[in-house]
Nucleic acid binder design. Sequence first.
DNA 1: GTTAGCACTCTGGCAGGGAGAGTGCTAACC
DNA 2: GGTTAGCACTCTCCCTGCCAGAGTGCTAAC
Lengths: 354, 354
Amino acid sequence: MARRIRRSTGPLDLRSQAILRAVIEEYVTTATPVGSQALVDRYRLGVSSATVRNILAELELAGLLDHPHTSAGRIPTDAGYRWYVESIIDASPLPEVEQLMIRHQFGQVEFASEHWFRLAASTIASLTHAAGIATPAKPAAARVRRVDLVSINDQLASLVVVLREGSIKQSLVTLPGPEDQETLTTVAAVLNDVANDATAARATAALVRLNPATPHAALVMRVGERLVRVLEDYDRAAVEEVFSDGLLNVLGAPEFAHSEKVRRVFNALENRAYLGELVGSVAESGVVKVFIGHENEPPDMREVALVLAPYGRRDRAVGVVGVLGPTRLAYPEAIGTVRFVSGLMNELVDHLYN
Amino acid sequence: MARRIRRSTGPLDLRSQAILRAVIEEYVTTATPVGSQALVDRYRLGVSSATVRNILAELELAGLLDHPHTSAGRIPTDAGYRWYVESIIDASPLPEVEQLMIRHQFGQVEFASEHWFRLAASTIASLTHAAGIATPAKPAAARVRRVDLVSINDQLASLVVVLREGSIKQSLVTLPGPEDQETLTTVAAVLNDVANDATAARATAALVRLNPATPHAALVMRVGERLVRVLEDYDRAAVEEVFSDGLLNVLGAPEFAHSEKVRRVFNALENRAYLGELVGSVAESGVVKVFIGHENEPPDMREVALVLAPYGRRDRAVGVVGVLGPTRLAYPEAIGTVRFVSGLMNELVDHLYN
DNA sequence: GTTAGCACTCTGGCAGGGAGAGTGCTAACC
DNA sequence: GGTTAGCACTCTCCCTGCCAGAGTGCTAAC
């Protein structure tokens, strides 16, 4: 008993670490509780199953392992996974072959950020056999690069806004009366002048200062207000969009064999608010972050793990790529893949900004 | 025996129809096989359970009902559902209260087609308790309404194409060398002139005829070719995008309680090729169409039913709204909802075109 | 043609039992 | 003192048998 207390409070000795690692890696591949005999058989531990049992009991006391019932093998707890992730997070590069393969795939698609997100999500999904997720790079505050106003019919015009990082927003504007395209082009030109490189706040300020003698001043104001709203809407959303791919991979995992759990996972992915929060935290930190089971706040995410990495530049725009899977995730591969893809996305975004 | 053969070949008499209808409606609500006693208890049939059993046996012989095992109640076959759908397809208007509710919801969102698709899908989902699907209205051939070219950096420009029906396509163009925004604007102006209201084919023809003395002719050609490719890519895709909502509703149905089936349903929804085919057929016919179970070609869709209705104008652009659910679907409600929403979308699209 | 009655069939749930896996404890060993 | 062999114990899993219940199909009477 005294021995146990000592072990459970102090750091793990090397042998305990090796055994914990073995349990986790075995469980990740087999998805069944791991017994002491299986460990001795499959790993060169150099001790008997009885000794292993003693250590398993200690690891369980320390909260790193659990067992579903008396006569079952051990499974890792979220805390066990956490320890494991900490121990490997700094050293899990993606094998070079796969790096080359991914680079090749990115070389194949058209040079357009939208394609990248999809590709990032699907690449991650196929490499990790879990769900891949990716969000577009989003700046803290949208800035206008260009405004265009296209006539649709007598009462409607389409306001097209190109943002600084190249993404596009569109909104239909109802016109007070019929206007020809020429007038609309003039209005767009005024807005391009007034709101050039402006954020929502600055665009608002510029509109207030607008010279009332400007041609079509009323229309400029009307469209300008809509422009500001488009920018504000964009800024308000924490995450613009979450691309995901390979959800079926997660579905295939035995822990999600029953549809009730599947339901939760899907709910989780729909949980934009929480994802937005995570994206923010990950973008802030600038490094790969892992969120395991109960470390996630929403109850629906208590059975999944997320590996997220930011890309982009904090002073410009940031997005996130990552993996969503069962807590029984192949963490080293997931971390390696996500880290590599985020680096690649960095390069691409850098190229966009020069 | 002679009696059975007569019945199984001829059309159904009124009583058989009433019983078939009762079985289907009962099964749709309870999701459990329907027994003769349950029918007598719950529907005013005026006959005993023994008589009902005789008729059930006939309906089974006619291929309209089935029973999973000897001592189980009856469930409808796809042919049974088909008969039912034919019998109610012309008369299942959506209750006025719900019509008003939907109109109200559409009044709430911003006037922009993208919002409509999402709203259509989610409205249909919540009203039918199945998955709602919607595709944007897509013309047979894209036509350019306006072209814009925005500088991103020394090597890149963003080509923005507004199509006639107001949707937007974007593509990044690599520039042979640094160009200022003014040059790009000139190039865009030339393209706006040359490719005004053009389809991919006409734009190609116009580029061929381009006067080589045009300022920046080489750049115009380069961007023009990309423009043509954007149009061609758009035309090529049978369905641009399929919005869906309420997949969780389908997931909740007892027939999809096991994840293997769920998997198939998701695969089915990813099956853009088949959906594109259906959309084409529905758009062509101009009316609500129902596809039940085995009537669907892809094996993954043999357990689902689709109710689809086109909207838009055949000579302009057409899209589709619909329901995807288990074959055990509340068809009258689904048909009524889909028909009404498609009508509403018609109004909105008409408004867009004036 | 309809119905009551009845034998029959099949499912679903429950209890019992044996095999198997794995544990925790104890006592012997190095 | 840590390590190990041995062993009793526990719990799951799976199979079997059993029973109640639901529903059918058939027959004979109405």
